[in-house]
């Protein structure tokens, strides 16, 4: 395959002046991978685009900063909140519904979410404060960091009704003609593994998180995607539809984000 130039991307003008990086705080968290090990994934097919939210190619300085931010080493560290506290050093999140997987999410997508949290376009009591304390450069860096890390998915994933799974798979693949729901795979990439830079993966994401987000879209609480497409879709879904499609995608493999 031809090597691609990392000249990208996306017209976002990211002019955050390079903030002085504070000295490393605390000891290395052994659960976070070394930057050196991540560099090769910067031009990986699936994360290449994800990592290029500025007009200069990402480098290990950005990754180093990103990892630092993830561990709570941001410049304005007043909140004392480190990403890894809830989302894990490798972006594994947890299944409560509140803390999604971040591992391998498109960098541009995560960066936009941080901006939307900060501006209130995506209302969230916890994340708004955290995002507001990050500089532009730090948001970019931590988004890039989580774009390139991988986290395993711990199995088994729990029992689920097979009829529900089947319905979820159907909604994912072909939507519902009766309800006017377009299929998830229209936009969310091959088998729901994401369509960088703007469309996150669903495969392997936590079911509780996805079902909760769908409800927020349906209720109009969340509306920060382009032209509010997700609200238009979620409005047509019942709670059971949301649960079905979320449980289904939770179980779809996404090897690029798990390293499996």
């Amino acid at each position: 395959m031809k090597s691609r130039t990392l000249k990208t991307c996306v017209g976002l003008v990211l002019l955050a002046a390079l903030a002085p990086i504070p000295a490393m705080v605390g000891a290395q968290d052994t659960s976070t991978p070394a930057v050196g090990a991540l560099e090769s994934r910067l031009d990986d097919e699936r994360t290449l685009f994800a990592a290029t939210i500025s007009d200069t190619p990402p480098d290990d300085d950005l990754l180093e900063l990103g990892r630092l931010v993830a561990m709570g080493g941001a410049e304005n560290v007043g909140s004392g909140m480190a990403c890894i506290t809830c989302h894990g050093g490798q972006g594994a999140g947890d299944g409560s519904g509140a803390f999604p997987r971040l591992a391998g999410l498109p960098g541009w997508y995560s960066y936009k979410q941080l901006n939307d949290y900060a501006s209130g376009d995506r209302p969230n009591e916890v994340m708004t404060g955290i995002a507001q304390r990050l500089t532009e450069r730090e948001r970019e860096a931590v988004a890039t960091y989580y774009a390139v890390v991988q986290a395993p998915i711990h199995r088994p994933l729990g029992e689920v009704d097979q009829g529900l799974m089947q319905w979820g798979g159907q909604l994912a693949a072909v939507g519902s003609a009766e309800k006017g729901i377009p299929a998830c795979v229209n936009c969310h990439g091959p088998q729901g593994t994401g369509n960088p830079p703007s469309v996150p993966y669903l495969a392997g994401q936590y079911a509780n998180y996805m079902a909760y987000q769908l409800q927020l879209w349906k209720d109009g609480v969340r509306d920060n995607d382009p032209m509010d497409v997700m609200s238009a879709i979620a409005e047509k879904m019942s709670a059971e539809d949301m649960r079905a499609v979320s449980e289904y995608y939770r179980r779809v493999e996404n090897p690029e984000t798990t390293g499996e």
Partner: peptide, 14 residues
Amino acid sequence: PYPQPPMGINHQPG
């Protein structure tokens, strides 16, 4: 530029 690497209908990551 939009340098997303191509993905076909049957694309499997990698």
